[in-house]
């Protein structure tokens, strides 16, 4: 979790290896329109200690499931339209598991990581977006 600008290329470099024939990446960015409303910015709130642990656990889960190396970073703070809010990179021997690992990581982030988005609009009050309820996961 970081308040600084994301660097997707640095994540790709971090998961690159001479043994890898593929590096897939996913970058999520702030959308200009949501549910018909013009968005000016999105604020990302976060419970940092648990969010960082969950990101690490998700990356480890992906690395257990596929022969990949994963790097992931997520923004906090108020971001303007077009700014990267999340970046994921997966390096692997072949493309299929790199794509699958990227998809897995972003879907798990949306389900498990304690982050909340408040959209700010050009007209009217901002709004916290709905999400997925958290539940205890026994380890």
């Amino acid at each position: 979790m970081t308040a600084s600008r994301l660097d997707p290329a640095a994540l790709c470099r971090a998961v690159s290896s001479p043994k890898h024939g593929a590096v897939a990446s996913f970058v999520g960015t702030v959308r200009a329109v949501h549910a018909g409303r013009r968005v000016k910015a999105v604020s990302y709130d976060c419970f940092v200690p648990l969010a960082e642990k969950e990101l690490a656990r998700i990356a480890a889960d992906a690395e257990k499931r596929w022969p990949v190396r994963v790097a992931v970073a997520h923004r906090t703070g108020r971001l303007s339209v077009g700014t990267a809010s999340v970046a994921i990179a997966a390096g692997s021997g072949h493309r299929a598991e790199a794509f699958e690992a990227c998809r897995f990581v972003i879907e798990e982030i949306k389900r498990r990581v304690p982050v909340w988005k408040k959209e700010h609009y050009f007209k009217g009050d901002g709004r916290w977006l709905a999400g997925c309820a958290l539940h205890r996961t026994r380890r």
Partner: peptide
């Protein structure tokens, strides 16, 4: 994340709404 029946441990405690990262 705690289950309702879990005893509260020491340290930081937070109440977390449904999440929507990404």
């Amino acid at each position: 994340v705690l289950s309702p029946s879990d005893e509260l441990p020491d340290g930081r405690l937070a109440v977390l709404p449904p999440v929507c990262g990404g």
